[in-house]
Design a protein around this nucleic acid. Sequence first.
DNA 1: CGTAAACATGAGTAAAAGCTCGCATCATAG
DNA 2: CTATGATGCGAGCTTTTACTCATGTTTACG
Lengths: 188, 188
Amino acid sequence: MDAILDATARVLVRDGYAALTTNAVAVAAGVSIGSLYQYFPNKEALVLALRERHVRHMSALMMREAVFWDAAEQGVPLEALITRTIHVAMAAHRLEPALHKVLALEAAHLEARHEEDGTEGVLRALLERYSRGPDAEVTVPDLDVATFVVGRMAHALIHAAVLDPPPGADPHILERETVRAVMAYLTA
Amino acid sequence: MDAILDATARVLVRDGYAALTTNAVAVAAGVSIGSLYQYFPNKEALVLALRERHVRHMSALMMREAVFWDAAEQGVPLEALITRTIHVAMAAHRLEPALHKVLALEAAHLEARHEEDGTEGVLRALLERYSRGPDAEVTVPDLDVATFVVGRMAHALIHAAVLDPPPGADPHILERETVRAVMAYLTA
DNA sequence: CGTAAACATGAGTAAAAGCTCGCATCATAG
DNA sequence: CTATGATGCGAGCTTTTACTCATGTTTACG
């Protein structure tokens, strides 16, 4: 069950989505195709289950490291929060980078978008918090638009910085510049 | 030949990449499969040719509208140039939005990245130009990193604003905010 | 016209891959 | 030990689909 998903991930990373056959997965998992089909009704369900598990793993890691989001209620400066959030998000992307890349690149068309579901809600709430009061740090006019812009921008940069960085670039610098980009937009 | 590529695009948009069969393309084009294989050695070459043509179309539109890039040599302010560039890029994405989306989403794995090839070079040169002199507008430290960041950020926002905007959002506002994001980062 | 080269045709082939199903094996209970 | 249900097995069926090729048709040209 979990072993089958592990095997799916291995084959996916090794051979790509085009070469992912149910038989290959069964062999890689050390079980028969018959057993595979006892747990997953078809190939699509298999890949979907793998993706969901992967998203769960990433979310779990982020949530564990990100209790500090409650700190928004206290007087944590925006920059500290953004810095920490982006750091954690990049760490999550580094969990299984190769798998994440393949899923994003070759399995993106399988059903609904997984990303900005819970994410957008949290982001929106944070922006709201930091744009209120006399000493508001977020100066952007439309919060819905800002949520959209920051969400897309941050995700693209995190994804690219971890999975597709320019050759010879320092990861720390990419991380710092990602933070700079988000901060610059929010406080322009 | 061109009719076959048109048919490929139509089938791709209508049915998605998974349902793209050479026979379906031949039928949609009103030719026989035999004829199709006289012009394209195999299915992959067919899709690749379509993608290249699509990229050429977009590039052509951008280049036609973007002679003003030479204006960087004169005293055009950075913001005007960025505004115009992003406007043109969005227009290019609106040429065949559905096709662009399918190609980006379901045919991304077919061979090399197409985007930031010529683009990154041009972008890098522009940043260099605007970061020199006493009245430099670009204040970013590392130009290589900045090229990377701006390239990814702008592309993600342009792509999202045109092909995947939040429901009920004003395109003009999304465009303006994209410009704001890029400008804020470059002149922070 | 005649010839030949280029182009078009579509039934058929062959290989791949998703999935089934009858049988074997094992675990648990009585 | 036997019965019963759950789980595992994998040869092979079936469908799908990329691609071929022998034949027909059009075009170019002297």
